[in-house]
Nucleic acid binder design. Structure first.
Lengths: 117, 117
DNA sequence: TAGAGTGTGTAGTACTTACTCAACATATGT
DNA sequence: ACATATGTTGAGTAAGTACTACACACTCTA
């Protein structure tokens, strides 16, 4: 179903061949889980793990955490917190940007970056 | 802990006295749950219910669903979906707006409203 | 004084999430 | 041939989520 595991495995194996010894067992030790568990996650036998683990996994394969979380069907909890503080405002903004092209959102990001309040 | 139940009860009782017969039992029937369950939710004995129920509850007391969901510690799943489609972009934007004043976000909303892409 | 309507307390449960443990199989290097 | 490393399998589980069922107690009206 989800491409989460597949994506992670591919990236891990790619890095593994590039010198980094990222074996499944090594990674499982690094992030503190049972190798069998990780094996099942990578093959899609098990659902993606908790947010904490996903973030560790992202760091290891040098991937953006939001991207990996999204592949796992999740949204980072720090974004949650931000949205929940002003639900109406953020709700409106995000829904409005639903169908906006990437570059429109991107220019908003840049605009806000330079914003002086 | 959460003000969700308290908030809902207060609003329900306020409306109840304004003519609308919003008794706990009536509401529980409307949204399709056991009265005892709703009673416990309102008093904070039980955690807030599922998203679906919260949305029904919001409609009944005529409250914004994002606001009630936020009180329940949740973010609407339609926002989730939007964010997950472009996690990096939205992640960046939202984090950048974390400490922006309300009116700055609001003016973004309006800007986007008139946006022509 | 009976019935209807209101809220509450106790108990239980089905389902999901997020894992662990230990044994097994296969390949790799020495 | 042996140790070591690698991935896999099956079984089990503790804790959380999202509720239901139903008996109880009070109040208010006809």
């Amino acid at each position: 179903m989800s491409d989460f595991g597949k994506y992670f495995r591919e990236k891990r194996e790619a890095l593994s061949k590039k010198g980094k010894g990222l074996s499944l067992r090594y990674v499982s030790k690094e992030i503190g889980v049972d190798p069998g568990y990780l094996s099942k996650i990578e093959r899609g036998v098990f659902a993606p793990p908790s947010e904490n683990l996903i973030i560790k996994m992202a760091e290891i394969i040098d991937e953006d955490k939001d991207v990996l979380l999204a592949l796992a069907g999740k949204v980072s909890s720090d974004l949650h917190i931000i949205i929940k503080k002003r639900p109406k405002l953020f709700g409106q903004l995000i829904r409005q940007l639903k169908d906006a092209p990437d570059n429109a959102i991107f220019s908003l990001v840049r605009e806000v970056q330079d914003g002086d309040w």
